[in-house]
Design a protein around this nucleic acid. Structure first.
Length: 554
RNA sequence: GGUCCUUUGGUGGAACUGGUUAACACGUCUCCCUCUCAAGGAGAAGAGUAGGAGUUCGAGUCUCCUAAGGAUCACCA
């Protein structure tokens, strides 16, 4: 009669290493007390999802604030869904967010002593553990076809019993070693299943870092751990990798919560201590009045690249994600305006339990604050980076005269409440293109100039001419503005609204009306930043040219 | 359908072991400042904590029931 050992050797004849060998090869990490080891373990099936960035930010933060290790691992065991090159792309995008792994899969190479960090390169490691399970009768080959399984499921559903491959329904579990070996020798395709000893009527108490004590039903499913293509399933890879990579905290989306009992039984079956788990809420969106998970297919905000393309600063996106990660972040940030994300201490128990709705308004607000704080020099750098990638025309404009662009960005930056004009980088061009030719001419010519019809055109022209003739902005702002008032006074404009209201019959308008005329001539619009600063940037010659143009167009 | 998770204004959410008018931020509205706009300042509206019952002098906080929303039930992760 054949033994389990015969079976194990038939399946994995080439595997001679033991679990103990692996333990020696991947010894416990030598880290200070309390240091946590976390990871980002994406599968290369597409772009960086907003939800993944969220969990990754948390994982990285937890590792680094505890002086631990944050590593990356590529979970490429699903060969069918794999998208060529997306592994590298994922890592590149992470780098955009300044999330730098200490070790692991880095896109084009790997670093660290706990590798390989690409699951498809770890086949032998998985086999060692499966062989061990086989030897101890905790795993067995299963020859059931897809059709067999479907039929099983169907009858189970019809009879209203829990569907799945478990207990008495686990047909291949009952095969003798001889029978199994005979089938393998025949060349019948098979997978390897874990033999569960659990009972779903029993509850296990588990501790989740964000959810606290949880009572879950024991796993009783004989899940597949080794697929017919020779690669492990997620569950099994998680067991092996996170054990040998010495992960201490697994943070992942809450969609994994239901499979936690599987993972716990897997760890127990090897006599290994399971890591701590943190099941994070998923980010939702409101769709026809219903909350639902952000969907890769339907929602463009699911792709983090979407926000980058729209020109939200990386810092703003991170900060927004932090506000949903930790409810006390915002308060902390208000109290510590000079400190950055790195100084904040994240804690799992300040995390809310249900999925936050993605709030674009909030992101916009944060983004406006973040951009508002940037210096003109920083804006120049950021805008060059952004436009080089997404707006070549504007990029050329900026780089053709960096000093000029920087001056525009510097408008009223030094005031105690600096301007907050821009929510995203993509808005900048539209707001300042009047400072550039040919856009200024285009703006002036494409629509009738919005001068106030209450004022006679000749009057406006006269004022503009005199303004140009007496132009002097080489003073401080208030002196300049006083001269504008004086100019207005000559044409019967009050020096402010109050004076006008008091003596309606003495005046035809007030200084604001004069300012509006100049503003329109210079920018084509009734709205723009402070005229004084625009004058100083444009310079005399250009101002004269613009005034001429406006007059000609009237 | 089974199982599990969750539930405080429009949104994110605070509220220590149950204790008086349920924070704060975003958004909305009003007013002020102002050469317009963006800001900034002041203020207002908006929930009685999913619903119900119970325990208690007292409940968002404890118990039970109901409801709703979500997640998950693959040789995908």
């Amino acid at each position: 009669m054949a033994t389990l050992s015969d079976l194990a050797n038939l399946i994995f004849p080439e595997i001679t290493e033991t679990v103990l060998d692996l333990e020696k090869r991947y010894p416990p990490r030598n880290l200070p007390e309390g240091a946590e080891v976390t990871r980002f373990a994406p599968s290369p099936t597409g772009f960086l999802h907003t939800g993944s960035l969220f969990t990754t930010l948390v994982a990285e933060k937890v590792a680094h604030q505890s002086k631990g290790v944050f590593f990356t691992r590529l979970e490429d065991t699903d060969t069918k869904r794999e998208i060529e090159g997306s592994g590298k792309e994922l890592l590149d995008q992470l780098a955009v967010f300044n999330v730098v792994p200490d070790e692991g899969y880095l896109g084009d190479h790997e670093e660290g002593k706990y590798g390989p960090y690409i699951q498809s390169h770890r086949a032998d490691i998985y086999k060692v553990v499966i062989k061990d399970l086989l030897l101890r009768g905790r795993a067995y080959p299963c020859f059931c076809s897809q059709e067999d399984l479907q039929a099983l499921r169907k009858t189970q559903e019809e009879n209203k019993i829990i569907p799945g491959y478990y207990g008495e329904y686990a047909k291949c579990r009952k095969l003798s070693v001889d029978e199994a070996m005979a089938l393998i020798k025949e060349g019948k395709p098979y997978v390897i299943r874990f033999k569960s000893m659990g009972d779903h009527n029993n509850k296990v108490e588990v501790d989740d870092l964000v959810r606290g004590h949880l009572f879950l039903s024991e796993n009783d499913q004989d899940i597949v751990i080794y697929k017919s293509d020779g690669l492990p399933t997620y569950h099994f890879a998680h067991l092996v990798d996170d054990h040998f990579m010495r992960t201490t905290i697994v943070s992942r989306g809450e969609e994994w919560l239901p499979s936690l009992p599987i993972h716990l039984e897997l760890f127990a079956s090897m006599g290994w201590q399971a890591p701590k788990y943190a099941h994070l809420p998923v980010i939702m969106k409101l769709d026809n009045g219903n909350k639902r998970k952000l969907s890769k297919r339907k929602d463009n905000e699911a792709a983090i690249a979407y926000f980058l393309q729209d020109g939200y600063p990386v810092e703003a996106i991170k900060e927004y994600l932090y506000t949903i990660a930790n409810s006390n972040y915002e308060e902390w940030h208000i109290e510590n305006p000079t400190l950055g994300l790195d100084d904040f201490t994240f804690s799992f128990d300040k995390m809310s339990l249900d999925g936050a709705l993605f709030d674009l308004e909030k992101l916009r607000n944060i983004s406006k604050e973040v951009i508002g704080k940037y210096t003109a020099k920083k804006m120049l750098e950021e805008m060059e980076k952004y436009t080089e990638k997404y707006d070549q025309n504007f990029y050329k404009l900026i780089t053709s005269n960096e000093e000029y662009f920087e001056k525009i960005m510097d408008i009223e930056k030094d005031k105690h409440n600096p301007r907050k004009d821009y929510v995203t980088y993509s808005e900048v061009f539209d707001k300042i293109k009047f400072m550039y030719e040919p856009y200024y001419s285009e703006l002036m010519e494409s629509n009738p100039l919005p001068f106030n019809p209450n004022f006679d055109k000749e009057l406006i022209k006269n004022i503009l001419r005199e303004f140009a003739a007496t132009l002097n902005y080489d003073t401080d702002e208030s002196t300049w503005f006083a001269s504008l008032k004086a100019l207005g006074a000559k044409y019967h404009f009050a020096e402010n609204m109050k004076t006008l209201k008091k003596n309606r019959d003495l005046y035809i308008g007030q200084v604001g009306d004069v300012a509006e005329m100049i503003r329109i001539a210079l920018t084509s619009s009734k709205q723009s930043p402070n005229i004084y600063y625009i004058l100083r940037i444009l310079g005399k010659e250009e101002i004269n040219r613009r005034i001429e143009k406006a007059i000609a167009l009237m």
